Amino acid sequence: MSIPHLELSQVGMEFPTDNGPFVALTDVNLRLKQGEFVSLIGHSGCGKSTVLNIVAGLYQATYGGVILDNQEVNSPGPERAVVFQNHSLLPWLSVYKNVELAVKQSKQKRSKAEIREWVEHNLELVHMTHATHKLPSEISGGMKQRVGIARALSMEPKVLLMDEPFGALDALTRAHLQDSVMEIQAALGNTVIMITHDVDEAVLLSDRIVMMTNGPSATIGEILDIELERPRNRIEMADNPLYNKYRHQVLQFLYEKQRKVEPVFQNNKNNKKAQSSSDAA
């Protein structure tokens, strides 16, 4: 078997609480190839963001670990860039300056002219050159997220980590940004891990969908290979039988996991009602 580009091996994560350790993740194993687009999907609290933060080096796994190109990941680094749901732009800096700041933090040594050329190149990738000198307060939410993506890409990361990057956007803006991400990823060949709650988004963008079980002690429940030809057109996909088959498989997995949670929730609710009635009596 060939050596993977990125590997999560037996990853487990515990958080200390007053009542003892909370086990967020257990035995998470995943191998990614160079240039692969993988989506993480699952119900809230299933550890998706924890997985992403471990790969980013923001969390240190309690057990197991992450290897990127034969190097252990134990801290943040420019080879792994994160795009958050909140754009996180510095409000006092222009669009250009926000991206320039990231370029200057990267390991690449560039002259002033090379920095300018590289910043403009990355803004052009996300179609934001027209807003170069605007402040974040002067552009829309979708534009801010485009700048956040440009900032991440400007670091020339081996792995692009995206935490629900389109979750706070309206449907039309989300669709435009999804198309942009597909175009950029096809052109640059970055490895991408994206968290999403949107089944259609996962199927449209991904090479594989990693479906997480419910927490605590969440882990990978199923991995679905998406064998749809690229480039993908969202209009054509709507009538594609294979697309709809994949969509159904993901929805079925999520629905079955939800059914396992609801009886527990209902029992807890009934127990509280019974306790309340007993106290009243």
Rank of each mutant, 00 (worst) to 15 (best):
S140Q: 11
Q258R: 14
A113P: 04
I54N: 06
Q105P: 01
M211S: 07
R116Y: 02
Q85F: 04
T213C: 07
S137Y: 10
M162A: 04
S9A: 14
Y255D: 11
G57M: 06
A81T: 05
P76D: 05
N70Y: 07
V95Y: 01
M155V: 13
Q249N: 12
R232Y: 02
G167S: 10
G45P: 10
E36G: 05
P165Q: 10
V55L: 10
F166E: 03
E7P: 04
I195D: 00
D198L: 08
I223G: 02
Q252K: 10
N86H: 12
N190H: 12
S278H: 11
D27I: 09
L188I: 11
R80D: 03
A274V: 05
G189P: 01
K269W: 12
Q185R: 11
N244S: 09
E256W: 00
H5M: 12
E79I: 03
H43N: 12
V264L: 15
I115Y: 00
V73A: 00
Q275E: 13
L228S: 03
P157Y: 07
E236G: 07
Y255N: 14
L161N: 03
D163M: 02
E227A: 11
E183A: 13
N214G: 10
Q249L: 11
A113C: 01
T196Y: 02
H133L: 15
G65C: 09
R259V: 09
W92A: 08
L93H: 10
Q108M: 09
Q145W: 11
H5C: 08
H127A: 15
L172I: 14
G215A: 06
N267K: 14
E72H: 15
P241D: 07
P76R: 06
Y63T: 15
A187N: 12
L89Y: 01
N267W: 08
G148W: 07
M13L: 14
L228N: 02
V73P: 01
R116M: 07
G47K: 03
T213S: 15
L6G: 01
V23H: 12
Q249F: 00
A61D: 09
P231N: 11
L123V: 12
V23W: 00
E183K: 15
E236N: 14
A131P: 09
Q71H: 15
V159A: 03
N86V: 01
V73Q: 02
K144M: 11
Q71E: 15
A113E: 13
G64F: 05
R259A: 13
E256Y: 00
F253T: 00
D279P: 00
A171L: 12
L32H: 02
I235N: 09
P16Y: 05
N122T: 13
R230D: 05
V23F: 00
K260P: 00
I67K: 11
P231T: 11
A24I: 06
Q258G: 01
V11R: 05
D225W: 03
G141M: 09
G57V: 08
E164W: 05
T26A: 12
Y96L: 06
S88G: 03
S137I: 13
E114M: 10
N233E: 11
S94Q: 06
R151K: 11
G221A: 09
G215Y: 04
P263V: 02
N270V: 03
A81N: 07
R80H: 08
